[in-house]
Design a protein around this nucleic acid. Structure first.
Lengths: 176, 176
DNA sequence: GGCAGATGATTAACATGTTAAGTGAAATCG
DNA sequence: CGATTTCACTTAACATGTTAATCATCTGCC
């Protein structure tokens, strides 16, 4: 680190009143903390996934599909925590690669039902060992108990924020 | 919740051996927990930013610029936690909107130095009150002490993961 | 039965994430 | 001092995030 300034500072005078409100130091804001933590975690997994030709989101989808027999697209979006449009694009690609299978629900032609293919399962099984090893290493380094506690706290945070949203909608802003 | 299956299950036989390794329930994995928590937080801020014509990242950059007089692009990328290419594109846009100013370092023509403009400062000042109010509401709902503790834990996690990366490089994989 | 409104999914359009390649300038070394 | 390497930054190319619009089907109601 070490700022290493005073070398490109031959500036003139630029911003005058800048630096009025230091605010919350910014780099320590909650969104930044969460972003950096998540990035630090994912940086561990990405290389392995990449070696198997998978992105983080594609992995999430396949992973979610191994926990069910078949699932509708909307439900899958909820479980894998992806927005519809992203999921739509990714499913198109995964289907083309024959890692998943998709068919239309007989009772409701709007709905599509997705399931993982044998090829997809094989891929998952090829990646899983490394992923599990990395996860174990993280758990070991950070501490299993602490990790569980952290996840609890994140869950509580999430729920209190959802409650906050609801509170902000109960009246007023109906139409746009 | 509630699986609501047995309605689109008129399937034939699809996946056979599926559901072998439930793994870590998936939705409770650390990356997912962090992702959902962060999304829950950002969902609070996005509408306000959007009303002012700013994306989350643009806001991060302007916000970071208020804490310094001027800063080099690479340093800014580090502080705002953005990758070079993303930052490059966003700076191009912010400069076109005259929210920032950019000039070239005299001592090193490779380096660009960025600073916020008066217009940019005005925009920040217009958005800040709402942002601060939302942040205060979150703090209040979740608890200031708990929030500080959560951020501590996130910081520790981040640092232990950085240590993990280093440990995985000390020998071997030098060239690509 | 037929039509207005709701719903599931996709497409469109634009912004960012991510890795690789390109460009010009500076540092290093023979 | 000139070739090579390194460095700061930008472009390129592709994948995803995000919001709005579109499309087909469904549902409720008459």
């Amino acid at each position: 680190m070490a700022r290493k300034k005073s070398q490109t500072e031959s500036s003139t005078e630029t911003a005058e009143t800048v630096r009025r409100a230091p605010m919350r130091d910014f780099s320590r804001s909650l969104p930044m903390s969460l972003l950096r933590a998540r990035e630090a975690v994912m940086r561990q997994f990405r290389p392995s996934l990449r070696n198997h030709g998978l992105t983080e989101q594609q992995w999430r989808i396949l992973r979610a599909l191994t926990t069910v027999d078949a699932i509708e697209v909307t439900e899958l979006a909820r479980v894998a925590f992806l927005l519809g449009p992203s999921l739509s694009r990714i499913l198109r690609d995964l289907e083309a690669r024959q890692l998943i299978e998709r068919r239309t629900a007989k009772a409701d032609l709007r709905r599509a039902v997705v399931s993982i293919s044998a090829k997809g399962l094989k891929l998952i099984e090829a990646v899983a060992p490394t992923s599990e090893a990395i996860y174990a290493e993280i758990t070991s380094r950070y501490g299993a108990r602490k990790l569980a506690e952290l996840q609890d706290m994140l869950g509580v945070l999430e729920r209190s924020l959802v409650a906050m949203e609801v509170a902000g909608e109960e009246s007023g802003e109906i139409e746009e």
